[in-house]
C-alpha cells in the first residue's frame, strides 16, 4: 500500500464516528462572504494605515503620477530601476527623467544581477484600507515576484478604485487572479522584525523602502 493510501485509510478509520454527510451539511455555517467594512473614508483609512507602518504615501491626481515618480527618483537619487515588461510607458519615461537608468527584465535577469539594481517600479492589483495592505498579482505591469523583492526600493502605484475597505472584499477581487494561476504577494508596510528583544527593526530582507503613490 502506498503511503498515500495508508494515510487516507487511517483518516477514514479515525473518522468512523462522523456521519456520512457532505461537509457543508455535517457542519452547517452561515457566513456572508466578501462583506465590506463600514468606514468614513476608504482612501483616508488606507493612507493612514500605510503611514502607520512607516511607508511613504503620496496622494496625487492620476495625471500627476509621472511627475511624482520623477520627483521621488530625483529626491532619492536612485541610479538604476528594473521595469516590468507591462509597466505604463509614461511611468517609465518619468523614472528616466528623474535620472535613473532603466533595465529591462528581458532576457530574465539572474538573482545576482537583480541584487545590483537599486529599485523597482510596479503597479498593484488591490489595496486594503483596514489593514494598509497592497496586493500584487504579478501581472505584466508588476512583473515576476523577484523584481519587487530583491532591489532595496519599491515604488508602487495604486489606483484609487483598486482600494477596498477590508480583507473579505479584497479576497473576492483577487479571485480571478488566483483562478488564472497567478501568485499573490500581500505587502503591509514592508519587511520588519522584532526578533531581538522585541525592538522593531524596519527592513530585513525585502525592499527597505516602500514608496506608495495613491492615484485618485
Amino acid at each position: 500500500m502506498s503511503s498515500r493510501d495508508v494515510i487516507l485509510s487511517r483518516i477514514r478509520k479515525a473518522l468512523s464516528d462522523v456521519p456520512n454527510l457532505p461537509p457543508e451539511k455535517d457542519i452547517p455555517l452561515n457566513w456572508e462572504y466578501g462583506k465590506p467594512l463600514a468606514m468614513d473614508d476608504v482612501l483616508d483609512t488606507f493612507t493612514q494605515m500605510c503611514l502607520d507602518y512607516k511607508a511613504v504615501v503620496e496622494r496625487v491626481p492620476v495625471a500627476e503620477v509621472p511627475a511624482t515618480i520623477t520627483k521621488l527618483v530625483t529626491e532619492r537619487q536612485v541610479k538604476t530601476f528594473v521595469v516590468p515588461a507591462g509597466l505604463d510607458q509614461d511611468w517609465r519615461k518619468a523614472a528616466a527623467d528623474g535620472g535613473a537608468k532603466l533595465i529591462e527584465d528581458d532576457p530574465p535577469l539572474s538573482s545576482p544581477e537583480l541584487n545590483d539594481i537599486d529599485g523597482v517600479i510596479t503597479a498593484a492589483r488591490v489595496g486594503i484600507a483596514d489593514t494598509g495592505t497592497i496586493v500584487l498579482d504579478h501581472a505584466p505591469d508588476q512583473g515576476r515576484r523577484a523584481l519587487s523583492l530583491v532591489p532595496d526600493l519599491h515604488i508602487c502605484v495604486i489606483l484609487a478604485d483598486q482600494v477596498v475597505s477590508d480583507v473579505p472584499e479584497a479576497v473576492q477581487r483577487l479571485k480571478p487572479s488566483i483562478v488564472a494561476g497567478n501568485p499573490l504577494t500581500w505587502i503591509s508596510g514592508g519587511s520588519a522584525t522584532s526578533d531581538i528583544e522585541l525592538s522593531r527593526v524596519e527592513g530585513v530582507h525585502g525592499p527597505r523602502k516602500l514608496l506608495i503613490i495613491l492615484a485618485e
Binding site: G181, P183, I187, S188
Partner: peptide
C-alpha cells in the same frame, strides 16, 4: 504578531511559468 496584517504574505499555486 498582534498586527492588522503581517508585512508579507505569499500565495502560489504550483508552478508559475517564468516566475519563481
Amino acid at each position: 504578531t498582534a498586527e492588522r496584517m503581517n508585512p508579507y504574505t505569499s500565495m502560489w499555486s504550483g508552478v508559475t511559468p517564468g516566475d519563481g
